[in-house]
Design a protein around this nucleic acid. Structure first.
Lengths: 352, 352
DNA sequence: TTGTAAGCGTTATCAC
DNA sequence: GTGATAACGCTTACAA
């Protein structure tokens, strides 16, 4: 209603081709109802005029936006340091591309705002489906999609925490098994874990899996929760290594904490892996180039993204989607972990 | 036209409030033309019914999608390793949020596909503006927006390379000055640079700036171009250090190459910084945690993103936008660089 | 102040 | 096989 936008519309094509609007629509959508002659003519004209269906009009008409929504929780510190979100987005967009879908991205400083963005999306019909990541215990976002089937949603978390929503999960049980078993075989008997925020579904699942696994093998296990940040990781590491009774291996819930803690560990006089083994629960380029390199649990996050996209596209198609757990854990052995040293630890545990 | 979507429309509100559609529209948009009584009633009803304007209808009606488009060049290797794109996106979305805009994301394996996505967006009116990143010399994407002012575009490159489009640039001249001067003062007389792809605008600008700066100070300078990847960086490093006449400092165009090359340098028997100083042209968390830590040029990429968003929003508003160069270079001095050693280098330059 | 109606660009239903 | 025409939900002249 504003400017006389110079876009080519279906009417322009119809006029030029000397046929009606509906003929054009049929022809362009490959539907029956037009003769081959007309179809050819229309296609030719449309091509020459560079016609493309207006997305807003199409969305209005067939109630499909061809957008999948994702809200980034804008956590300054971690977002830019971890590659997880970027890899996920890469996988998502690549797969959505196959069906001509786009990723609609917004960001929110907190969960409160995120919830209202989602409500906005639902009410405005701005997206055909939504991906929910970083699920928390009793996450209020889930409720938005649980009852009303207005907009399909996929939760990136364990199925048991998705409140009935279809979920795409990591195999945390398998991961815990892999890591704990490995450390056990190296001779470690007391393992600590420096974990992510306690209210994260993610963390909760790992907590349980780890406790189970440690119990099964008769290992001592203690766990500190923090916020995934370098500072948080270092603080917990310092506290942990200041205790009179120290673990011989630390598992970090992310690579950022593992990496930054290496320095702290060194400053406190411990050698890795001679005095202390370090394992990161997720892998990244950083684990390869750090000194020492870090043993880490590798998962294909890009593939996670494309799998999520596939599931979302199915949901949009109205198909039933079963929750999936991706079993692609692989522990990459690097320098930061090794057998329990025979020599007594020389670390003093002094704070700098 | 398909399902009887249970969304609340403006007509529902009108019916419930007992007024006409236009009254509702006026009331909800804060425009004159309705009495305060009616307005209050309408607002109340709309609130109770949870009404939100349908985005497709709104987009169709006022020819504004409230989307800004960005195409990710899906370069598997680098995208997930570098934090640049993620930080940019964080800044973009955070700023777009202030005006209720979203970032529409698609990905393309190559520049050919990217161009057609852009053409599609223009023809379909799917976005109100577009951000062009990773500009290449003679970039064909620029041409799409140069002549026709259908969709405003902002180029993330030097203004001289933007073909007349408004541009948001880094201060590469200042950066070269900072880095070369620093190395010069440390006593280095032969500096090498391992750069990004030659066809990137980015690289081109840096090449020139670096040559100028080196010439001014009478330094020797040589440059190898590669692809930003760890492997590319290592390969060039090895070649460079195998030469009989070696530089005493290497500047890497990104942190990924700098980091992975540290290992290569070590394997070849050189010590950093005693035998060789290493500087990275961009900073990241990785530069802080590597051993040794890496001297790097720090820029606020998140701020780059929000500045870009601000400019894009101005363009959408139809305002004239001047190209901007952000002058926030800061060289962070870390362990990887130092004065030219007085002792002869002990490196043998042997390949492993 | 209010309601009616046309228009945004599609798709789909109907007569012809 | 073809061309009007209504509908999607909203904005905005224009009448009443």
């Amino acid at each position: 209603m504003t400017l006389p936008k110079s876009k080519t519309t279906i009417s322009d094509v119809a006029k030029t081709a000397g046929v009606s609007n509906s003929a054009v629509s049929y022809a362009l959508n490959g539907k029956p109802g037009v003769s081959e002659d007309t179809r050819a003519k229309v296609l030719d004209v449309a091509e020459r005029l560079g016609w493309r269906p207006n997305s807003a009009a199409k969305a209005l008409s067939d109630a499909k936006t061809h957008n999948v929504g994702l809200v980034l929780t804008y956590d300054t510190g971690v977002l830019s340091v971890e590659s997880y979100t970027m890899e996920l987005i890469a996988g998502l967009t690549a797969e959505l591309e196959t069906e001509g879908y786009s990723l609609l991205l917004r960001s929110s400083p907190s969960h409160v705002e995120e919830r209202s963005i989602l409500k906005e999306w639902i009410a405005a019909g701005a997206v055909d489906a939504v991906l929910i990541m970083n699920v928390e215990l009793g996450d209020s976002r889930i409720d938005l999609f649980k009852e009303k089937p207005t907009v399909p949603a996929l939760a990136l978390c364990d199925a048991s925490m998705a409140g009935g929503l279809p979920a795409l999960a990591d195999d945390e049980g398998g991961a815990a098994h892999l890591i704990v078993d490995y450390l056990h075989e190296l001779g470690h008997e007391y393992i600590a874990r420096i974990a992510g925020p306690e209210m994260l579904e993610h963390t909760f699942i790992r907590d349980n899996a780890f406790v189970d696994e440690a119990a099964e093998l008769g290992l001592r296990y203690s766990c500190f929760h923090t916020d995934y940040s370098p500072q948080g990781g270092e603080r917990c590491t310092r506290r942990l290594l200041s205790l009179p009774d120290r673990p011989t291996a630390i598992v970090y819930d992310n690579d950022v904490m593992a990496l930054s803690s290496l320095q702290t560990i060194g400053k406190m006089g411990f050698r890795v892996p001679d005095d202390l083994s370090v394992v990161s629960w997720n892998d990244s380029f950083m684990c390869e180039v750090s000194r020492p390199t870090i043993t880490a649990l590798n998962r294909d996050v890009v593939r996670r993204g494309s799998k999520a996209a596939t599931m979302l596209l199915s949901l949009i198609d109205g198909r039933q989607v079963e929750s999936v757990q991706q079993e692609d854990n692989e522990l990459i052995f690097r320098q930061s972990s090794g057998p329990l040293g025979v020599h007594p630890r020389r670390g003093q545990g002094h704070m700098e």
